[in-house]
Design a binder for these strands. Sequence first.
DNA 1: TCAAAAGTGTTAGCGGTACACCCATGG
DNA 2: CCATGGGTGTACCGCTAACACTTTTGA
Lengths: 234, 234
Amino acid sequence: MQSYYEEHDRILVALDCIIFGFDRNGLKLLLIKRDFEPEKSNWSLMGGFLKRDESLDEAADRILYTLTGLEDVYLEQLYGFGEVDRDPVERTVSIAYYALINIREHDRELLEKYGARWFPINELPDLIFDHPQMVEAAKSRLRYRASHEPVGFELLPEKFTMPELQILYEAIYETKLDKRNFRRRILSMDVLEKTDEKQKKYSKKGAYFYTFNQEKYRAKINNGDSLVFKPIKL
Amino acid sequence: MQSYYEEHDRILVALDCIIFGFDRNGLKLLLIKRDFEPEKSNWSLMGGFLKRDESLDEAADRILYTLTGLEDVYLEQLYGFGEVDRDPVERTVSIAYYALINIREHDRELLEKYGARWFPINELPDLIFDHPQMVEAAKSRLRYRASHEPVGFELLPEKFTMPELQILYEAIYETKLDKRNFRRRILSMDVLEKTDEKQKKYSKKGAYFYTFNQEKYRAKINNGDSLVFKPIKL
DNA sequence: TCAAAAGTGTTAGCGGTACACCCATGG
DNA sequence: CCATGGGTGTACCGCTAACACTTTTGA
């Protein structure tokens, strides 16, 4: 009975990406200047439409790649936004994804091409449609994830210092954390490797670089060592 | 530039509902016998297609109402499933929702009409398409929600006993809990009202009925009394 | 009177949190 | 030599988890 399928509405399925980055000044979001009507030249999340021959995840990857030139980055589906009037032109459903990328590693030319800019998370411009809701949902999901899994490292370069990691967590949770307790907690997870190198850019003493040992983490998880990453106080 | 929209693919958007119920024998899922091809007469989640003039939430409400005759029940969006070949007939994206309903309150005639049946959560028949994944996702979401918010009460009648509530939590977490610790924890939330009535069906002594005080709960939340419902050990 | 489920308190150990001083170095 | 940020240890408190007996009453 193919006809059961045929009598229903076909709808535009969009994808929108909330792209997080981080530097020592805090969390950032990558936004673009929309280059078509309506809302042309207003700030928007990077988005696109789902093609018939690609999965939702593939489409999200493609859209992120189009803007940043990055592949294999952390990308997680967030929520489906489907109010009838969310797009004034035509009925669309949008599946929002959020991405965590290393803010230093993206293709500057592409960013320019799309009129993209990094905005501090607390100084966002007005966004089109329901994009502000999407951003809120993404912030909240990021907080949840970061307290249960080591996603924070996706936002940092390969080598990072404890003070940097702490600044990141403070930015995600919008709170101050105690230096000693933070270090203890993170190190007790036993998935960081201390290097001998020091970061001397931001202090005279210098801070040791650490790396995240992904294999060690996976091994723990597979061992059933549940809850390696304990929730961090809000 | 309307044409920017026009050049893209329109796709069938489906919705599927994972419907949870509960009785003293455990968690149940409401499944239907699919009545059209393909996979006709195989077990399936209750589903339907999104109409152009309704939001995703409205569509999910409608689909749930169609099967159960219930309105205003707990219904939360779960995840968007969008593999290219998830439906062999035509490309569809399905947004899964899960519902928590009181297993005693649904329209038996409707259930019969759709060939629906309650299955114990651990004795599900083979399900079509990617529905097994959807069920797994729903179980995991339910566990998360139940440890952070008082959603468990959605699955119980207005009046319920402590032993019943405990059985429910044990079913959700698939674990045994200590009676004394459980009661203390639940009562410390201070949102249950003890009644003078006793449930005498299941024991000679009888167990007191309690009711959930929704207003008290909301008041607490609005007061910023965060984390009223402490996570329950896995 | 006894079987079966309901109800009730205490304690020990662990983990979270608060807290203050020394270290290394470049300017 | 001093200013700046990096690095370290301890003590208390509260919460979690472990644990066993009494109560009620229908059969």
